Amino acid sequence: MPNPPALPHDDEHPIPFQQMVEQIPGLIFQLSRDANGVLKFIYLNERCMDVLGMNASALRQNASLLADLIVVNDKQDYFDTLMQSAHTLQTWYWKGRIQIPSWQDIKWVSIRATPMQHADNNVLWNGIITNVTQTKQEELAAKQMQARLLELTVHDEKVKEQERTRIAREIHDELGGNLTAIKMAISLLKRKLEVTNACVEKVDYIDKLADNTITAVRRIASDLRPSVLDLGLVAAIQWQVDAFVRHTGTACELICADDEISCPADQASALFRVTQEALTNISKHAQASLVHVYLEKNEMNTILLSITDNGIGIQSADQLKSDGFGLRGMRERIGMLGGQFNIDSSPQMGTVLNIALPL
Rank of each mutant, 00 (worst) to 15 (best):
E174Q: 13
T180P: 01
A142C: 04
I206T: 00
I171D: 02
Q134D: 12
I182G: 14
L140I: 13
T135P: 00
V195I: 10
Q162A: 05
A147R: 09
R166K: 06
I171E: 00
R166M: 08
E161S: 10
A185D: 08
I186K: 07
E174P: 12
R164D: 11
Y205K: 12
M145Q: 12
G177D: 04
M145N: 07
L149F: 11
L152Y: 08
E157T: 13
L193M: 14
L193D: 14
E161A: 11
C199Q: 08
I206N: 01
K143T: 12
E157Q: 15
D204K: 15
L152T: 02
T153I: 01
W125N: 03
L188D: 15
L149H: 10
L188T: 14
H172L: 10
Q162D: 05
L140K: 04
T196I: 08
L193N: 14
E174V: 08
N126S: 15
N178P: 03
T165C: 04
L175Y: 10
L175C: 13
A198M: 09
D173I: 13
L189F: 10
G176Q: 10
E157P: 00
A142I: 14
Q162H: 01
L150P: 05
T165Y: 08
K136E: 00
K158M: 12
D173H: 11
E194N: 13
T180Y: 02
L188H: 12
T135E: 14
V200L: 06
